[in-house]
Every structure is written in C-alpha cells, then in structure tokens.
Design a protein around this nucleic acid. Structure first.
Lengths: 212, 212
DNA sequence: AACCATTTAAAACGATCGTTTTAAATCTGT
DNA sequence: ACAGATTTAAAACGATCGTTTTAAATGGTT
C-alpha cells in the first residue's frame, strides 16, 4: 500500500460525507472522488453502497459498544462486591462517557458519532435497522442493569425512560442546528464538551430516578 | 372542486410519504400518484419540491406553535396573577401536551409529527433549516419562561437542558424502531400514548429541575 | 357567452444515480 | 519472476430524478 489503504480512505470519506449530508444525499461518485479512488472501488471492496454504510458503522461502533458494555459490567461487578445495588448515575456514566470520550479521539470519530445520533431516528430503514441491530444487545444490557439500580420502578417505565435518555443523548451527539440558536460563536471547545457531557449525565440521571 | 382540493390531496400525500420514507427518498411521482394528481401539479401549485415541504410543515406547525405559545403565556399570566414564579412542570406541560394531543387528532397529524421529530436533526439542510426557522421563536419564549421558573439556575444551563428536552421529545415523537425492541405487540393504543406523555413530562421535568 | 384558473395528459429535458463491464496497469507475497 | 490480488481508467447500463413544456379539457365566475 502506498499511503493509506484505499479501503480505509473510502471508509473515511464515506464517514465524513454521510455525517454532513446523510446517506441518501451522498453519491458514490462524491465518496470515491473524496477518497481519491476509482468509482468502481466501492463495489469492489464492499459490494454495494449499503454494505459500505454497514462497514462505516461497524468499524467504530463495535469497539465503542464493547467499551460501553465493559464499563456496565464493571459497575455491576463493583455493586456485587460491595453487596449494594448499582448506582443509576454510575450506569449512565458507563454508557455516556465512552461515547463523548470517543468523540474527542479524532475528527473522524466526531463525524461518525453524528451519523449514529441521526441513524436512530432515520426515516430510511436501511440506515435505521442497521443501527438498531448493532445497538440492540447493549440497550438490553443497560435496561437490565437499570432495573437493578431502580428496583422500586417497573421495568416498562424504566425502558420508556431509557428511550428518552437515548433521545436526549442522540440529539446532543449530532449537535443539531439547535445549539446555534443560543450561542453566536460557533466554534466549540473542550470545555463546552465537558459542560455538555456532565449536564447530560445530570439531566438523564434525574429523569431516570424521578418518582413514579 | 370535485371532492377535496388537489392542493390538499398533494399536501396529505406528501405528508404521509415524507413521514414514512423521508424527504430525499420520496419522489414527486410517488406523491402525485398517491394524490391521484398529475405530475406537474406539484410544480404548478407549489413551485418546487422544497416549497411543497415548506407548505407541509407550515400547514400544521404554525397552528400548533400558536397553541403552544398561548399555553406558555397562560402559565406566565397565572404566575403573575398569583404573585408566584411559574412552575417547571406547568411549562413543560404547556409545550408537550398540545403536541401529543395534536397527534391524536387525526392520522395525518400523527404522520406529520414524525416528520417534525426527525427534521430537528436532519442531515439535509433543506429540511433542518426550514424546521428550525419555524420553531426558533417558540424555543426562545420557552427558554425565557424556564429561566423564570428556575431562577437559581444559570440561563446557559437551562438552555442546555431544554436542548436535551427537545431531543427526548423528538425521539419520542417519531417513535423510532427503538420502541419495537421492548414490546412484541406493535399496535399502539391511547393508553400507551398517555403513558408515554406523562412519563415524558415526569422525565424532563425532573431533568430540568435537577440540582446544579 | 366569454374569461380565467385549474387539471389532465403525455412527452421530453438534462442530470444524477448505483451498478457493471472491460481492459490495462500496478502492487504484493511466495 | 510468476500468480493473484488490487487499483485505475473509461465507458456504458438502465433507472430514476426534479423540472418544464405543450396542448387539450374542465371548471366556475362574471
């Protein structure tokens, strides 16, 4: 390989363009041009445009989900060791913090995360179903862990609140035009990022623990 | 006019198809076929596909926003009359309840609301900017009202929490595939709807009122 | 009756799309 | 050096897209 893998360059370009314009609005020609690759390269390496999207999602989401899953296990283990029930905020942190830390890792990660934030509620089944299949086991694990943390609340209610949590986080993650409504200065610094993360954790923890 | 306005039938068909497939994935041919109108009818009545989207959004969002705005004013007036600060939950209800009530009005309304839920975070600027321009004044009013309700919290924090609130509500509103992860039975009844609405209000009220 | 807005029909415009094909060139590992 | 995988180039495939045009038909109003 000369510089970087063509396959990697295609993934990077697709990731960036999907996050900026969405899946349906991004053509293979735009992707291959940005990746300085041949038009046929996508179908050669991945088979189809949809398979490229799957590869883009899996490349980063599988490790991230593994990380989040490990941290949930860690909270549960610590709870067992100390013979206590797991804390709601600790579980929320286990889920949220890796996501935002991951986002700061690189520019590519940041762009990727905004794809994920939108995929959840995408009107396009090709996008939505792909994401839901990747996140489904993790959500189930988090749901069960939250049931342990909030034993006085019914399972169904906890799932509904988890549903709201995902909405708040997904919205936060893809930084819609909403945030520009408040602040004129559009450049975001790490401080704002920490501010967002901590406030999100406070917000959803309070919502999850609210009296029934 | 024979039965219903062609213009109205086009709006109804576009509303339904946009909510099911998204804006980019819906062709004018699909819309005009569903509306039993001529292909040229869209460009005759509205000028372009994007202008049709604007008309679809404005038809229902302008009255809905007026309704939400009136209810916020009502809460603020009552607070002044009783020489108290407005309640957070009352303001949340003023914003959320008309939305869900509106959704139950008709099948068309339900489909429309899911367009709105997605528009907020859409990758397509044509969709997102259109929605943000329509909602901007209402969000500012709600933000100011919440600052009165939560005088001990800084304005910036309240806006961030309002941001999360919009995310939770938007996610809830377009009922993504998420809800199908929990329940096998997919038909939703009014009870589930009330359950969702009340839990959403509890959730975001607790989040907004959380200690700093 | 005449007028004007509305609607239909059908066809075509140029453009873009995902995908496939063909062929030659380049690189990689043994 | 040879074989096989990778990459490039260029062109074409059929399909769909938003939009425009032309013409004829229909409708209601004055």
């Amino acid at each position: 390989m000369t510089q970087t893998d063509t396959k990697t360059r295609l993934l990077d370009a697709a990731e960036s363009l999907f996050s900026q314009q969405g899946f349906a609005n991004t053509s293979l020609r735009a992707i291959t041009t940005a990746a300085k690759a041949n038009l046929a390269a996508v179908n050669y390496h991945f088979g189809s445009k949809e398979a490229l999207l799957r590869a883009v999602l899996e490349r980063r989401l599988l490790p991230l989900n593994q990380q989040r899953s490990n941290r949930i296990d860690q909270v549960l283990t610590e709870a067992v060791m100390s013979e206590a029930i797991p804390g709601t905020e600790a579980l929320v942190r286990a889920f949220v913090e890796p996501t935002f830390a991951f986002r700061r890792n690189s520019i590519g990660s940041s762009e990727f995360i905004s794809i994920v934030g939108r995929a959840m509620t995408s009107a396009d089944p090709a996008v939505r179903d792909l994401f839901l299949a990747l996140i489904h086991p993790l959500i189930n694990k988090l749901h069960l862990a939250l049931c342990l943390a909030l034993p006085h609340l019914p399972s169904k209610l906890i799932f509904t609140r988890l549903f709201f949590t995902m909405g708040a986080m997904g919205h936060c993650i893809c930084l819609s035009g909403f945030s520009q409504m408040f602040k004129d200065n559009s450049d975001s610094n790490p401080e704002d990022d920490d501010f967002m993360t901590n406030n999100l954790i406070n917000f959803v923890t309070a919502g999850l623990e609210a009296p029934c």
